[in-house]
Every structure is written in structure tokens, then in C-alpha cells.
């Protein structure tokens, strides 16, 4: 069993030893809170893993200045589930229920920064679900984006859009 684990971790020079305090990776959040995680967790985070690889595993304390101690536990939780192969629809539904819009965005940025493909896909879907079929004004508020169109530009664009893509296939819009 231990061998199996260590073979999984062969990119970590430190992985020869049994999981112990020396094997854990310390992730330091932007507000200086240390989170100790198993190397397998770190492996899920490509950014962290490549940092470890570059230093031949000698450095096990990784500063993550862009990620707060509020968000990091969520990321770790997701990675743990992912390793355990327990990412189910139910888990994801529960996971996302805990998050408000702000947290979803922060986690998305964290997943992007840490380069965690699965989490990024998942959160992209969550964001997409939350802005799908919403008004543009809502989406702007959601993203915190200023409308920088002049009224003329926006009117022109809307006209182009209406002309080309909508208003002609009422069947497609009825569902909205």
C-alpha cells in the first residue's frame, strides 16, 4: 500500500519516506496562514507542483500570496475529493451551495492561479450557470465590470446582434 502511494508520488524526491511531518507541504496563504497538506494534494495544483519540482523537492513551504486563508480550505477540500475519486454531482452541488458569488469568483481565480484543471472546469460551469440567461446588466454586476460602451456603440451592437442572431428564431428564445 505504502509502495503504491510512493510510486504515485515519484515526482517528489521526498516521497520515499512515509507520510510524516517532513513529507507534508506547507501552503502559505496571502494572509500568512499555513496549511499543511499531503504531497498528493500539492500534486493536484500544477503551479505548486512545478515549484516543488524546480527545487527538487527541497522546498516544501510554498507561499501563495494571491490566495486567502478563506479560500484555500475550499481548494484543498476539492483536491482531496478529487484524489479520492469522490467528485460526484452531489458533492459538487453541496460544495457550490456553500459559496456566494464573490467566493465563486475568488475560487475561480485561485483555481486559475494554481492551475487546477478540474476545479477550473467545475467553477467555469458554476459561473456559466449563474450568468446564463441573465440580462447583460446582471452579468456586468456579477463580474463587477463597468459598462464602457457609449450609448451609440451599445445601440449599434445590439442592433447588429438582433439583426444577425435573434428575433428570427423565436423557437430558440421561447425558453428564456
Amino acid at each position: 500500500m505504502a509502495e503504491e502511494v510512493s510510486s504515485q508520488m515519484n515526482s517528489l524526491s521526498i516521497s520515499e519516506t512515509n507520510p510524516s511531518s517532513s513529507a507534508t507541504i506547507s501552503l502559505v496563504s496571502g494572509d500568512d496562514i499555513v496549511f499543511k497538506v499531503e504531497p498528493t494534494i500539492a500534486k493536484e495544483m500544477e503551479t505548486v507542483q512545478s515549484f516543488i519540482d524546480e527545487t527538487d523537492g527541497k522546498i516544501t513551504t510554498i507561499p501563495l500570496p494571491n490566495i486567502s486563508s478563506h479560500d484555500l480550505p475550499y481548494v484543498i477540500e476539492y483536491c482531496e475529493k478529487s484524489i479520492a475519486g469522490k467528485i460526484t454531482k452531489e458533492f459538487e452541488a453541496e460544495f457550490v451551495k456553500k459559496l456566494n458569488n464573490e467566493e465563486v469568483k475568488e475560487l475561480f481565480l485561485a483555481a486559475n492561479y494554481l492551475n487546477i484543471k478540474k476545479l477550473l472546469d467545475f467553477l467555469s460551469q458554476v459561473i456559466a450557470d449563474r450568468i446564463a440567461n441573465k440580462s447583460v446588466e446582471y452579468v456586468r454586476r456579477y463580474f463587477g465590470i463597468e459598462n464602457d460602451f457609449t450609448p451609440e456603440e451599445e445601440a449599434k451592437l445590439r442592433e447588429e446582434l438582433a439583426w444577425t442572431f435573434t428575433g428570427v428564431d423565436p423557437d430558440d428564445e421561447d425558453e428564456n
Partner: peptide, 17 residues
């Protein structure tokens, strides 16, 4: 993100900014 939006909806992100 856009790739996860339904087809008709994705195009509307053109109006954001």
C-alpha cells in the same frame, strides 16, 4: 467560461464591455 454557456447565451457576453 464562455464555452460552458449555452449557445444562445454565450453570444450575449459580447454586450458586457
Amino acid at each position: 467560461i464562455v464555452s460552458f454557456l449555452p449557445n444562445e447565451s454565450s453570444m450575449e457576453t459580447i454586450l458586457i464591455s
